[in-house]
């Protein structure tokens, strides 16, 4: 029995978990290469990147802290409107807009987290749904500010930092979105592998034990809810900056449901689930949705039912699971 070795192994395993996997390098290099190699697909790729970021923000909640949200679009839409209004009234510089949107959505998340975290998970579902509906109604009613059902147009998009123009330049705009996503993924990765991130996992795994080893559960959940809301707001702002109009669809239930579905398709708790899910979702939408919208709705519903039925081992996605299992580093026993 050589316990010395297993101890050493487990310490290395712990370090390895937070290190970057080679697949991650490949993925980001491929993403960077796609800026130059796939010019015809930039519109789709931009969409995928933004949805990935949005799904990542939900993953922080669901995959790491165990909070189910049916209304995550509230923060996405809020960020988008804030970014658009900020650009119209102050400056069209995109990075400033992202920061402002992120802070605003984060503050909204902070305020609403106090409502969300009070109840059991059933009331949480209802409250998250209710918050998104209230935000939708507000956006709809304050049409003098938001354009209501017509949407908000005329948002200026200046060159990034005054030097890098992205307005009506798909390649540049995709590159800009990709860089923002990369930075935020990097930050998210640091967070989930930090002591704070582990305490979230502990709360998700066993809230009773977490509080009896001294973790202030509610404070940590408020913190992650705020971070997730801020991420969602930045994703919304990105979409606002890369599309001509900010409309009520930014904030409706469909969006909350779609992002949840994308994340579930790709899998929760390893950060890249949203990337996989949104890519599959949007590519499939492009093909199936082109036939008729009813077909698309039907197959999305079908996918949800099947995933829910087999979600335990991720059923039809076990193939992905196997590839990504390496990424997650929960390799088979040594």
């Amino acid at each position: 029995m050589n316990t010395g070795n297993t101890v050493q192994d487990s310490v290395t395993a712990l370090k390895k978990k937070r290190a970057w996997h080679w697949l991650e390098y490949v993925f980001w290099l491929a993403a960077a290469a796609s800026v130059f190699l796939l010019p015809s697909q930039h519109a789709l790729l931009t969409q995928i990147a933004i949805w990935s970021l949005f799904a990542l923000s939900l993953d922080l909640l669901l995959g790491y802290a165990g909070i189910v949200s049916l209304g995550h679009a509230a923060y996405f839409g809020f960020g988008a409107y804030v970014a658009a209004l900020f650009a119209i009234n102050f400056t069209g510089e995109p990075i400033t807009g992202l920061i402002v949107a992120g802070i605003a959505a984060g503050l909204l998340g902070l305020a609403t987290s106090l409502l969300v975290l009070r109840g059991t998970d059933l009331t949480r579902l209802m409250v998250t749904l209710g918050i998104a509906l209230v935000m939708y109604e507000i956006a709809n009613q304050m049409s003098w500010l938001t354009g209501g059902a017509d949407g908000l147009t005329g948002m200026p998009v200046n060159p990034v930092l005054g030097i890098f123009p992205i307005y009506f330049r798909p390649a540049n705009s995709y590159a800009y979105v990709l860089i923002v996503c990369f930075v935020l993924f990097f930050v998210a990765k640091r967070i989930v592998h930090s002591p704070f991130g582990y305490s979230l996992r502990a709360i998700k795994g066993n809230p009773l034990r977490a509080s009896s080893i001294g973790i202030p559960n509610n404070l940590r959940l408020i913190a992650v809810y705020t971070i997730a809301a801020s991420y969602a707001g930045i994703a919304g702002a990105l979409l606002a900056q890369t599309t001509p109009v900010v409309s009520l669809t930014y904030i409706d239930f469909q969006r909350s449901a779609d992002v949840l579905l994308m994340l579930i398709i790709g899998g929760t708790g390893y950060l890249y689930g949203g990337v996989v899910g949104s890519a599959l979702f949007l590519v499939a939408q492009k093909f199936i949705g082109n036939i008729t919208p009813q077909y698309w709705e039907f197959w999305i519903g079908f996918a949800l039912v099947v995933i829910a039925l087999f979600a335990r081992d991720r059923g039809v996605f076990s193939i992905f699971e196997r590839i990504l299992g390496a990424l997650r580093n929960d390799k088979a026993k040594p």
């Binding site: 704070f196 582990y198 305490s199 913190a223």
Partner: peptide
């Protein structure tokens, strides 16, 4: 009442970190 997803090493280190009031560190690697 354990953390099923974590390893014993992770769980114990988590407790020690919380005891030392380092549980809010979000930038340093666990």
């Amino acid at each position: 009442q354990l953390f099923g997803e974590l390893s014993p090493l992770e769980a114990i280190a988590l407790v020690i970190g919380e005891r030392e009031k380092l549980g809010t560190r979000f930038w340093r690697a666990f």
